[in-house]
Nucleic acid binder design. Structure first.
Length: 323
DNA sequence: GTTGTCAAACTGAGTC
DNA sequence: GACTCAGTTTGACAAC
């Protein structure tokens, strides 16, 4: 007798060989032995057979015919018929010698996966039901669900990582574009500062280094710069920074709190930038009424006012452009 | 034969 | 006590 076996009542042998019970008996009679009126079948042979092509229904039918379990080294342990499939399962797997890892069949895995998709938690009733359908001990079904939940969690972490990385890459592109804008605007500011300084030196000596055209161009540049930055800030505030939500929520508010106010220029600033040369910002649709026009040439009060305001405004620009 | 990967199974702590 | 979870161990299997 093997280390574990089932003992069948001799009356069981009268079952038809075409029935599930008959199939089991045929196997038993072929591979095992007999003791008096009882016949035994090794667990190994039984498990092998049940694991191959025996249906779930056959499994239960067979087990309901079991009348006892015997183990090597102990007196034959007799017991009445099992009263429920669960009881049969428990006793079968308790007596079964500790197996090495049981690989699940693809059919079993498919059924488990379908069940997992429906619900990743396993209530006791569902566990028993699944265990019966699969021909597995409930404990193994529970372990499979536990491991499956762990695998799902790992996969979720990987999915989150991919999503965040894509978001980061997009943000990086935004950042690079902003840096480029920053540098371009900064060089414009430097250019204007240089011209401003040259103009100041000219004022001291009574000669302006700026021709009327230069002055007009300079003012035009300032207006364009102003509009460019204002547009940039407006874009950031209204549509976000290139469609990145995280940036929208953080940086746009940052701009509102820290940087927008300085961009509010003196009321007549855009007017002072206008020249009789006809230079006029296309985007500037504010009326020209009340504007101060000043003639080119020698330093005037207008120029002084403009320089003072320009310096003030450049401070504002610096606060925005410099980190 | 060694190594790496994956999945089954186990363990201990925490929760209800 | 039953259950879940994070972490770990162990065995099966494939690739080299």
């Amino acid at each position: 007798m093997d280390s574990g076996c089932l003992i069948f009542d001799s009356s069981f042998f009268s079952a038809s060989s075409s029935s599930p019970g008959g199939r089991l008996i045929l196997l038993g009679s072929a591979n095992s032995g007999s003791e008096g009126n009882n016949f035994y079948l090794s667990f190994d042979e039984l498990a092998l057979d049940l694991g191959s092509d025996t249906t779930d229904e056959c499994f239960f039918f067979c087990w309901s015919a079991v009348v006892g379990i015997a183990e090597e080294g102990r007196a034959s342990k007799r017991r009445p018929f099992f009263t429920s499939p669960d009881e049969i399962y428990e006793e079968y797997y308790e007596v079964l010698p500790p197996e090495k890892k049981r690989r699940l069949t693809s059919e079993q895995i498919q059924m488990l996966e379908r069940s997992f998709e429906e619900e990743d938690k396993l209530e006791p009733e569902r566990k028993s039901e699944l265990a019966k359908k699969l021909g597995l001990p409930p404990r193994q079904v529970a372990v499979w669900f536990q491991n499956r939940r762990a695998r799902w969690k790992n996969q979720q972490v990987e999915r989150d990582f991919d999503r965040l990385k894509a978001s980061y890459d997009a943000l990086l592109l935004d950042h690079d574009a902003l840096l480029e804008d920053n540098n371009r605007l900064r060089s414009q500011v430097n250019l204007l500062l240089e011209k401003l300084q040259a103009n100041e030196q000219g004022a001291v000596s009574g000669v302006t280094s700026l021709t009327p055209d230069d002055q007009a161009a300079s003012s035009g540049n300032i207006i364009a710069l102003n509009l460019s930055i204002q547009q940039k800030v407006d874009d950031l505030l209204s549509t976000g920074s290139g469609g990145n939500n995280a940036m929208d929520e953080v940086d746009a508010h940052h701009l509102v709190a820290d940087s927008r106010q300085p961009l509010i220029l003196p009321e007549n600033y855009h007017c002072m930038g206008l020249r009789e040369t006809g230079l006029h910002s296309d985007q500037d649709d504010v009326s020209d009424e009340g504007c101060n026009y000043y003639p080119g040439g020698a330093v005037t009060e207008y120029q002084k006012q403009e320089e003072a305001q320009l310096e003030n405004w450049l401070d504002c620009v610096e606060r925005i452009l410099l980190p």
